[in-house]
Each structure stands twice: as C-alpha cells, then as structure tokens.
Write a protein that binds this DNA or RNA. Structure first.
Lengths: 358, 358
DNA sequence: TGTTAGCACTCTTTTGACTTGAGTGCTAAC
DNA sequence: GTTAGCACTCAAGTCAAAAGAGTGCTAACA
C-alpha cells in the first residue's frame, strides 16, 4: 500500500464543486471545464468564479489537468475524498441483484462461481472472489477406504462441509484390518483439529502410536499430510474481466494485456487480497484507488472489496475491479447487497453449501 | 460448420508462389506484393510475371486484396490449401516443450491446468482443454458415511480414479445399520456400470430392492442420481487468452472483447468442441480456419484441436486458438508433442492422475 | 471583498490539401 | 511465355490552418 496523505479540509462551496466535477467525470469520462460546472449550478456562479475555485482545488491536489487547456479530472486523492466524504449512499435505488439463486446444497465451487458472475453482470466490471480459507476450519470426519490392494482413497470432511479427497498409491498390499485401525487412529487423533494444527508433530505422534506397520502407515500418513497442506494456494474465481476493455482508458492493448494477464494468472490477485487488510470500516467494505494498490498493473483501476462470512470460520473476500472512474455508489451497494445475501443464506441456518474437494 | 469448397488444383509454379505469399504473410502480417515474391525467388521471375500469376491465384480464390493497390493476403481457402498440401512438416525443429512435468499422482484438475498453461506459454496463443468426459467411465467404488444424524456424505470413485463426492441432507435420522445396508446395495448394484447406464430405471430398481426404508432411501438415491448426472457440463480449462490481444488484427476492443468473452464464458468453447468431430486424419489433429468455425466470434481466428486419450475411456480435447495467420507448423507440432507426452505418461502405466470429484 | 466580464493565450483536435510509396493491370516488345 | 514500362489507384504520412475548449489574469462592479 502506498500513499495515504492527510487531506486538507474544504469549505462547502469547494466541496460542492469538487463533487460536481467528479460526478460529471464519472458519467462522461471527459475532463470537466469550468463552464460545465457553472451550468450544473444553474449559472448561480459564473464560470470565472468556478475557475478560481477549481484552481484552488487543483493546488490542493484534488483535481488535475491533463494538459494546460483541458478541463479538470479527479486525482486519486480526489476520488478518495469523494468516496470518504462526498458520496451519499442513497439506498433507495438498491437495484435488486438479479438471478442470484443458490440452493443450500450446492457445492462451494458452484456457489462462488454464481456469485462472482452475478456481480460481474450486474455491475459491468470485473469481479473476483476467494474461496473461504479452510486453515482454521476443523476436521469433522476422516475415512480411508481400500480401492485396490495397493490403492486407498482418503475422504476428509471439514466443518462447514468442505470435502477433500486423496488417492494414495502404496508400495505394498494393505489389508482391511489395517485400514480399520488407521481409521480409528485418524478419527481419534485428528477430529476437531484445525488444518493449522495438523503439522509434522501430530503426524509423527500418530506414526509412533500406530506401532508395527511403520512403512505402510508412514506412507499413508505422509500422503494425508500432503492432502492437508496442498493446494492451500487460495483459490480465486473471477468473472467479467472482459468488461474492463470496454473502458477506453484501459483498452489500449498494452494496458489491457497486462490487466487481463493479472486476472488470468491468479497470483497477483492473491497478492492483492492478502494486502487488503480491512480497516473495518462500518460495513467492512474497502476501497482501493489507483496508486493505493500494491500491484503495478492495477494502478489505473480501483478495487472495492468486502469480506463475507459463512460461519464456522469460513470467510473469504469478494472484489470488484473497474476503472478509477467506476460507479462507486452502485458497486458498494451491490457488494453490500451480495454480502448480506450470502451471509443470510448460509449463516444461522444449519444448511450450508456442500463442500467440494479439489 | 460452414463452407468447405472443393479446391481447384494448381500447377507447380502457382503452388510455389502461393506458398511464398502465405509464408511471408505469416511472418510479417503485411500484405505481400509481387516484387517481394520476385525477390524471394531470387528474381528468377520478374515481378510482372508474378503479378500475372497472383492475379490468377486471386481469381481462383486463394488470395485476396485488402484494397486495389495493396499486396495479397491469403484467403481462408488459401490457408486451407496451405495446411492441407503446402505445409511440410519438418519434424526437426521439434522445439521441445518445456517445464512440463506431471507427477502421476496429481489430481486431474491440476494436470489439465498445467498442460493448458504450458501450451499457452510455448505457443503464445490461447489454449483450452476439456476434462475427460466420464460418461462412459465405470463406477469402481461407492461409499456412504454418516456425518451427523441427518447428514451423510457419499464418496464415488470411478475407473481412472476420478473421485466425486456429495453431501446429502436428510429429513429424518439415519442409523448406522441403514447406512451399511445401503452401502452393500449400492456396491452390488452400481459397480461396473457407466454413468450413462445409471439412469432412473436402475434407481427405481434399487428403491424397490431396498424394501422398507422407502422415504429415507429414496432421498439418498435421488441425491446420488443427481451427483451422477450433475455438472456433466463438460469442464473446460483455458489459458493465455490475453496472448490474443497481442495480434493487431484481433486487438481492437470490439473484437477482443467478443473473443475474450467467448473464452470466459466457456459455453461457446463447449459448442465449438462439440462440433469438432474429428475427421480422423492421420494424427487426429483438426484445423479449423476462419469462417469454417461454427462460432461467430472466432471467425477471425484459426483453431487447432487434438484428442488425447488416457485410457479407461478417458479422453478429451486440447485446442489452440490464434489469429488466422498463426504458425500452423509450430502449433501442430506442439500439440502432437503434448498429446504424445500425455498419452505416454498415463497410458499403459498403472498409475494415472488421481481423480478429483465434481 | 467577493464576483464577474472580457480577453489573450495555450493546447488538442479536426480538416483538407498534398506527397509519397507500394502495388496493380495492361500493353507492347522481346 | 516472359518482361519492361507506364498509367493508375489507394492508404498512409505530413503539414498548415482553423476550430474549439478551456485556462489565467486583469480590471471593473456591487
């Protein structure tokens, strides 16, 4: 995260003018001139007066001139001010989010894909969502089953009904009795532990307790440990990336390529998400504007993120990415909406989305 | 699929000239003039002669003039001719595909993602791969386990070690004995059946056989049937979509948006794949050029697809999408290469990629 | 003292005329 | 059948001029 300057305060008239400039720019994408603002004020002030005020606003750093004889455009700080203080949230036009129906028994993956797509369609920006991290999620059930003589399958169910599985290939035959013993051992030892708590120490202890079957048991436990730690590269689903190239300021093939590249290769997104430590504003929605973003390729964009919570320590993030002149009001409302819908669908109710392994 | 005209035959000199025009255009992306061709022939023919020949070639439909005073550009038919007859496959420059290492125990999803990404990086085009269809794949193992009083998890392993799971919520309590009975019933009835064979009839029969537990058993079986039929929307993984906007002829935001949109929304790709019924040429590689494609948004592209086969009836398709002036030789070689690598890694050997559910 | 009219100035964008260069088609000669 | 030569076409580049949008500054006004 980069700059986050302290902001000068403004008198009412300046606020009003800044507001108009930004609003107009959000709509048109064109620099806004003094005459336009004057008209928007019903000529209650002449363009000359506005010019003076805008000159001040530029000096204070809220707006910027692309070139000498152009109108003004909001700076990152201008947007920031707008989001923090100017933007009134008129809940009225709540703009119901459409087509979003999740059945409670659907797999997590499907739910996430639906959410992210619905948001993209509704906002016309790019969206992303992270699968809830299962690190702090507890093991609810483990079972090994022999498939063939040298092959067993492990089924792991976590709290919140996230299901994992792993096929384990062995070097020697395994008999049913051993499988049974292992199952008992696993369930007594691991049940109720979180993924974080299942480390090499626990594994070693189990190996010890299991006595005789050293090599075989050891193999199985190692494979299980792997299943627990593997693919905790948090999963990210995205949608609507192509919406971004509809905005001319992002459409040149240079920028677009970099931006969409970041989307395809989920790493950068992961980095972004990681750095977005919510400052826990009232509604948990965080807005990152332009250069405030830690990642290079998104410095011409704004990102709005929210944290959702499905209970059982299952929480993840939803994000909407658009041009800096994105419709913050609409986006923040949509996001809040979706968050509430998700929360209320899954929380409290006993039924939760069925997990998927992976 | 649209046009597939019968093609006029050409004398050797015309072939040679056509070849040069296309080759040159593939390299430069610029229309090729008569003088250029003359030079490429070491001036053994004057540009005037070439002009006459090119005029003929245009009349026959192999090449096209963007405008009166420009050089010539290959038509779809020209590319087709090139691919079918002109292109010599010099295996020498096999250009080893790099960084492709699959461990045999990795989950299918991971393997596919790796393949598709490797290909995209190596060719600099967009790539896609379909997960092997499991329709004709046989059930190897089924197991239900009670998680809570009204909740059970079903684990299904198919031949080829594809694993599926489903959490089933019940309306009444289920006891261990019932679960046990169900397990026996399921395994005796379903083992060895393919997904296609597990239809309502089989389910009805099982319900019948299970006697007393009607409602409960019925619920479970219905949920299982759902697990079998659900998400057979074949899965498609893609990579390198952004490579496409590096080619100027595809980069304008209109085209790019449509094209990348098709990539994001896997439906169109699925449609494409479905229509690509391999005409089983020698190597099973199919080239679709421009308007030959059934899908609108790809009519400025060419698509090269191959079918891979992992044994056990597990087969799917790999595709590479690029501009019409893509490097067909390289692409076809890479594809053949990858196909062979996949085949040899998984076939015959007993170890195959570990399945994933879903 | 804050507001406004007016004007000179700046810079981008548009337009149209002109030039250049690549390439063609045709004809006549070899 | 091949080639040289020439007239013609068209896209793309260059240039200057004009238009338009907007600013900053100054002087006058209430």
């Amino acid at each position: 995260m980069s700059e986050q300057l302290e902001m000068p305060s403004l008198d009412d008239r300046k606020k009003k003018i800044l507001n108009l400039v930004i609003k107009n720019y959000l709509e048109t994408g064109e620099p806004v001139g003094s005459r336009t603002v004057s008209k928007l004020l019903d000529n209650s002030l002449s363009s000359a007066t506005i010019r003076n005020e805008m000159s001040d606003l530029e000096e204070l750093g809220f707006i910027v001139q692309p070139h000498t004889s152009a109108g003004r455009v909001p700076s990152d700080m201008g947007y920031r001010f707008y989001v923090n203080e100017l933007m009134q949230e008129h809940e009225k036009k709540v703009q119901e989010i459409q087509e979003f129906v999740v059945e409670k028994t659907e797999k997590m993956e499907k739910v996430l894909k639906k959410v992210v797509k619905t948001l993209a369609v509704n906002t016309n920006y790019a969206t992303m969502i992270t699968a809830p991290s299962t690190k702090r999620n507890k093991v609810k059930f483990i079972q090994l089953s022999a498939l063939e003589e040298q092959q067993i399958v492990a089924l792991i169910v976590m709290e919140g009904n996230i299901v994992k599985n792993k096929i384990i290939e062995l070097d020697e035959n395994i008999d049913n009795e051993t499988v049974l013993k292992l199952n008992i051992l696993l369930n007594t030892t691991l049940n109720g532990l979180t993924r974080e708590e299942i480390n090499l120490g626990v594994i070693a202890k189990m190996k010890e307790q299991s006595g005789g079957y050293s090599q075989l048991v050891s193999d199985v436990l190692d494979a299980l440990a792997e299943a627990f730690t593997e693919d905790e590269d948090l999963q990210i689903y995205t949608s609507g990336a192509t919406n971004l190239i509809k905005y001319p300021e992002l459409a040149d093939s240079e920028t677009a390529s970099a931006l969409l590249g970041a989307f395809e290769d989920k790493d950068e997104l992961a980095e972004f998400i990681a750095e977005t430590n919510e400052e826990l504003k009232d509604d948990g929605i965080v807005v990152t504007i332009g250069k405030e973003s830690p990642i290079q390729t998104m410095q011409d964009c704004s990102v709005v993120t929210a944290t959702y919570d499905l209970g059982d320590g299952l929480s993840g993030k939803i994000g909407i990415i658009g041009p800096k002149r994105m419709d913050y009001e609409n986006v923040m409302n949509s996001l809040k909406n979706m968050k509430e819908q998700l929360d209320s669908t899954f929380k409290g109710k006993k039924e939760r989305p069925t997990g998927k392994d992976e």
